[in-house]
Amino acid sequence: MKKNLGDKIFKGIALFSSLFVILLVFFLFVELLIYSFPSIKKFGIYFFIDKIWDPVTERYGALPAIYGTIVTSILALLIAFPLSIGIAIFISELAPPALKRPLSFIIELLGAIPSLIYGMWGLFSLAPLVQLKIGPFLQRILGFLPFFQGYPLGVGYLTAGIVLSVMIIPTISSLSREILMAVPIDQREAGYALGMTKWEVIWKIVLGNARSGIFAAGILGLGRALGEAVAVTMVIGNFPNISVSLFSPGVTITSVIINEFAEAAGQLKISVLMELALVLFLITFLIMGLARYYILKRIEGR
């Protein structure tokens, strides 16, 4: 009888804890929705297609911010993903055992550095480098592409993308490493016993086995990049703009919120920023949800 009661209490606590998280997410969403209502009512769909951001006439378009967020995050993923896979393969498959631990440790430390520090590095070291070396170099060899037109200012999409990529490498690489290391030995031995070379075993067997997990790691990294605020604000240039050229300055959802929240006067302005937050919330939610769905489908398909 007594034991039964304990079980019930424990079950209650566990149930409450998990419900609490779900409720928290739900109320967060509802709260954002309520606050953004004036903005939704005033701008409607134009909020998403208007490029103009003018506090004086109270005309607010979110397109530059949405565009900037997506461009910088995808750029970050494009840079960070292959590097992270390389790091993960090196640590799990190739590095001598004495090197594995210190390497993983250092990479995990990278993830523990506050984003402000990455922002400072981006602004003081990387931005001049982009302006004087990386930018001109890219222009020389890839200048025919629309992405590398114009004059590199130092701050802008490219710099923000690079800073973000460094910030998400620890996330993607340490997750991928764990996933690679979790591929059973017997899968590798099966490959070797069939006469595969080490590279064939790594590429076709280990990565093949781990692909949905690695995909998920990439998506988690992307999620982190989408939501990153401080570092991006420091290097994005903060100019409401939509440009294909990666050298251009721009804004992201997070940078707009950070820059304008403190001095947001009037209900409409606050509501606009709330709607931006809502958009970010939905974008991340959607991407994570799609990734989850895709992975689940994969696993069940087996």
């Binding site: 059973p184 017997d186 899968q187 031995e189 099966a190 490959g191 016993a193 069939l194 067997i205 093949g208 086995n209 692909r211 087996r302």
Partner: peptide, 13 residues
Amino acid sequence: GMVFQRPNLFNHM
């Protein structure tokens, strides 16, 4: 060729 103690077909194929 070799056959192992436990079946080890490639899970992803």
